[in-house]
C-alpha cells in the first residue's frame, strides 16, 4: 500500500524570495508517529502548511491518502486534522460551538455523541459551555486538539503541541497521542523538544535549513548513532592512563578518580570485557561503574551542525 502522506521534492519559495523548503521528499506510513525535529525556522511549519492547504508548495507534489493536496484538495484535506502551533481560537465562543463549527466546516454531518466522546477523552466535557477566554492555556490547547479531531481525521498534524506547556500537561498530551495512535490515526508532530520525540515517536525526521537531513526509525537511529560512555571510578586516583590501556583511548577525569571509555553500542565487540581484564592486570581497583547513552539531543545537535557545515 502507498504511504499515507507522500511528499515528493516539495519546494516552497515565499513571495519575499525566502526558500523555506529546498526539495523535501518523505513518505509517512499509515498509523505511525513521526516526529519532525528541527531548530526554529527550519521549515517544519512550512512543510505542514503545504500539506494542510494553508500554503501552496511552489513545486513538487504532495498527496494525502492518494489525493493530491492541490488538485484534489477536498479528498486530501478531509483526511487531515491540524493542531496549529499558535493558540488561535475565537475568544468569545463556547467550547462546544467552536468544536461543532470545525466539524461542520469539514463537511461532516452533525454528530453530538461523537463530539461528546472527543471532549470527554480530552477532559473538556465539563468545560463545554465555557467561553474560550475563560480557559487556562492548557485547556485551550486541548480545545485545539478537539477541533482537529472533530471530523475524524486519518492524519493528525501537531505543530509543536507542547511548546510552553507544563510538564504535567506535556505527559497528558503524550498519553493522548498514544491513544490516538492506538485508534489508528497517523500522527506527525513537530517539536524542538528532543525528549518528546524520544518518548513517543516511531520514526524521527530531522529538518534544518529547509532540507530533510534524515528520517529513521527512532530505535535504529539511536543505536546507529548512539554512543555509550562507560565511567569507571577508581579506588585510588592515578596521575596518567597506564601505557597498556592506551589502545582504549581513555580519558581521565575527576582529578584521576574516573576513567571514561567511549564505545559504539552497535560495534561487533564493545571491548569492555577486555578493558576490564587489562585494568585488573594493570593493578587498578574499581570502586564503581556507570554507563550512559547519548540522547537523541546529542545526535540531533551533531546532525544540524553537519548540515550547517555542508
Amino acid at each position: 500500500m502507498a504511504a499515507m502522506v507522500q511528499i515528493r521534492d516539495a519546494r516552497k519559495v515565499y513571495a519575499g524570495g525566502f526558500e523555506a523548503l529546498k526539495g523535501v521528499t518523505l513518505d509517512i506510513e499509515e498509523g505511525e508517529i513521526l516526529a519532525l525535529l528541527g531548530p526554529n525556522g527550519a521549515g517544519k511549519t512550512t512543510l505542514i502548511s503545504c500539506i494542510c492547504g494553508i500554503s501552496q508548495p511552489t513545486s513538487g507534489s504532495i498527496t494525502v491518502g492518494g489525493h493530491d493536496v492541490v488538485t484534489e484538495y477536498r479528498g486530501a484535506r478531509s483526511l487531515v486534522g491540524l493542531v496549529p502551533q499558535e493558540v488561535n481560537l475565537e475568544p468569545f465562543e463556547k467550547v462546544w460551538n467552536t468544536v461543532r463549527f470545525t466539524r461542520g466546516v469539514f463537511g461532516r454531518p452533525r454528530d453530538d455523541a461523537h463530539l461528546e466522546d472527543i471532549l470527554r477523552r480530552l477532559s473538556l466535557w465539563e468545560k463545554r459551555d465555557a467561553k474560550i477566554n475563560e480557559l487556562s492555556g492548557g485547556m485551550k490547547r486541548r480545545v485545539l486538539i478537539a477541533k482537529a479531531l472533530s471530523h475524524d481525521p486519518s492524519v493528525l498534524f501537531l505543530d509543536e503541541p507542547t511548546a510552553g506547556v507544563d510538564v504535567e500537561l506535556r505527559r497528558d498530551m503524550w498519553r493522548i497521542v498514544e491513544d490516538l495512535k492506538a485508534s489508528g490515526v497517523t500522527i506527525i508532530l513537530t517539536t524542538h523538544y528532543i525528549e518528546e520525540a524520544e518518548a513517543i515517536a516511531d520514526r524521527v525526521g530531522v529538518i534544518s535549513g529547509g532540507r530533510l537531513l534524515l528520517v529513521e526509525e527512532k530505535a535504529a537511529l539511536m543505536t546507529r548513532m548512539g554512543r555509550k560512555e562507560l565511567r569507571i571510578d577508581l579506588q585510588e586516583p592515578i596521575g596518567a592512563v597506564p601505557e597498556r590501556l592506551s589502545e582504549f583511548d581513555l580519558t581521565l577525569e575527576d582529578e584521576g578518580h574516573t576513567l571514561v571509555y567511549s564505545y559504539d553500542t552497535s560495534a561487533e565487540r564493545t571491548g569492555i570485557a577486555r578493558l576490564m581484564t587489562e585494568m585488573s592486570e594493570a593493578g587498578l581497583v574499581l570502586r564503581d561503574v556507570r554507563t550512559s547513552q547519548n540522547s537523541l539531543e546529542d545526535i540531533f545537535v551533531g546532525l544540524v551542525h553537519e548540515g550547517d557545515a555542508a
Binding site: G53, Y73, V80, N88, F106, G107
Partner: peptide, 13 residues
C-alpha cells in the same frame, strides 16, 4: 486577525 483563518484554509472547502 486572531488566526483562526487556518481552519478555513485547511478545510475541504
Amino acid at each position: 486577525f486572531i488566526g483562526t483563518i487556518y481552519e478555513l484554509l485547511s478545510a475541504p472547502i
